[in-house]
Design a protein around this nucleic acid. Structure first.
Lengths: 270, 270
DNA sequence: CGCCCACTTGAACGTGTTCAAACGTCGTGG
DNA sequence: CCACGACGTTTGAACACGTTCAAGTGGGCG
């Protein structure tokens, strides 16, 4: 189901739902450090490259829940780095159903593809109130032209992205609802661990059951019942946006989860 | 269903199912010209870039039906350019079901991602007897290091690839079998038109019903019945590997097909 | 306090699956 | 030349996983 808020016509660039703050040096949790950590989770950065990244200037933006950051057909002039919150890519099909194609956690650059393919073929929206750091497209293009190894790493990031799409396709096409949901939870936990956003097997994942349904091609009713099964099987606890994998090995095997497609640099810890 | 042939243990590099021919100059239908046409369908090439591409040396290889060209876990040392035939990317899930994630037509570089992510997270196999031109990985890396614009275009190619994954996800997740199959046919026709492999709305597409089922997350039985519906609705003819869109506008609307996600350079003709 | 939204539950329904069998075609070998 | 096997396609019938519709509960926030 598509919510009214998803269809609002205000664009990210002129919305009152945003608050913009120019980023000075020395602010806590500097966005670029998050990006560096993300890039280092899938590859290596030289000190020169790290410094070059740190010289990027960004504009911090706050967006409210269910705010479209970019929309299908847009030609964004900035690339969004997610600092805090949760985003998703989605498309609406002919009869109004929504398909979510990916979730994005802090450190991600969900509209990085627009650097190379200027026109968006899908929309990007916040699932909770979130904070972004906008990187001007031109500045990033200049940086990548100067630093070919960095360009390679950004390319790599978009390829890991594609690998995640493929894995979701396998799930939607060939796995049961139970396995699909377990797999999604494994993936989100693994990705968050890789960038330090998880303690033990607990993560903050404020998805509604509708979000999960739209991501996995299910109905909310069935998601609800399947979540109860997962809880009943002693695999997870999940309430008020906190997901705990009580039985991590059990969840992995229930979800048929093989971490290799995430292409993490320093192989997972378990 | 997974066929025995998909599980054979011979690898592309040592199989008797291959015949290798070193590529001399002046052979008819030079593989690189195909690649150039493909790249020009999604962007522009300068004369310098075209010449640089033409200096790539390739090894021609023939592979038989259902031959694994690269397999999950491999680290290929060449990048495959499909010259003739039809390939697919696939994964096998825990209970033995196969999910096909993409089809590849002549001009495609299905394992291009291995240039940047050396280890394969899925397999690549031929659906009919096919011909490849293998480009040494190192040579291609050198070329892209010298020609940043060309590197951008290859990046772009992998991003269009990802856009196709997303569109398939939407289909598998949120569209009916009828719409899904119609959409697949539209996509294949559009892609083949873009590289000149289609006359009118007729294409050679030697897929079995099992291939279609595994690509769209359906059973072969249901694919069979849905194909009969598509024929009955006067939208297509499809036999012996030749697909004809009798009613192209009808097929497009039945398939909820919006061409934009293919990001073709010179906007489709209809 | 009252509304909105997310979650939960029940029951009927339907799209697509599974199992089973038969048919046609093509290539191979006796 | 025909018998045979392999494979793809077609059909029937029972079944199941997940959907849809509908109603009601619960919590957070203005």
């Amino acid at each position: 189901m598509v919510t009214k808020s998803l269809l609002r016509l205000n664009s990210a660039m002129d919305s009152h739902a945003e608050r913009r703050v120019h980023e000075g040096p020395g602010l806590p949790r500097a966005p670029i450090e998050l990006l560096i950590r993300k890039l280092e989770s899938i590859g290596t950065l030289s000190p020169t490259e790290r410094d070059a990244l740190r010289r990027l200037e960004t504009v911090r933006v706050q967006v409210s829940t269910h705010h479209d950051i970019v929309r299908e057909g847009d030609r964004p002039t900035t690339v969004s780095l997610l600092v805090h919150g949760l985003l998703c890519r989605y498309k609406i099909v002919a009869d109004g159903k929504r398909q979510i194609m990916s979730f994005h956690i802090p450190g991600d650059l969900p509209d990085l593809p627009s650097l190379v393919i200027p026109i968006m073929d899908h929309s990007l929206c916040s699932l909770v109130a979130s904070e972004l750091a906008l990187i001007p497209r031109a500045a990033l293009l200049d940086l990548l032209a100067e630093q070919p190894q960095l360009a390679h790493l950004f390319w790599r990031d978009t390829l890991v992205d594609a690998a995640i799409f493929r894995e979701w396709m396998v799930g939607i096409g060939r796995r049961s609802a139970f396995t699909r949901i377990a797999h999604l939870f494994c993936e989100m936990i693994a990705r968050m661990r890789a960038v330090g956003l998880s303690s033990e097997h607990t993560v903050e994942l404020p998805l509604t059951q509708t979000d999960i349904a739209d991501a996995l091609g299910l109905s909310t009713v069935h998601v609800n019942r399947t979540l109860q099964e997962l809880r009943g099987a002693g695999l997870i606890k999940y309430s008020r946006g906190m997901l705990v994998a009580i039985d991590w090995p059990g969840l992995r095997s229930a979800g048929d989860f093989e971490q290799n497609y995430l292409h993490e640099q320093s192989g997972g810890k378990d």
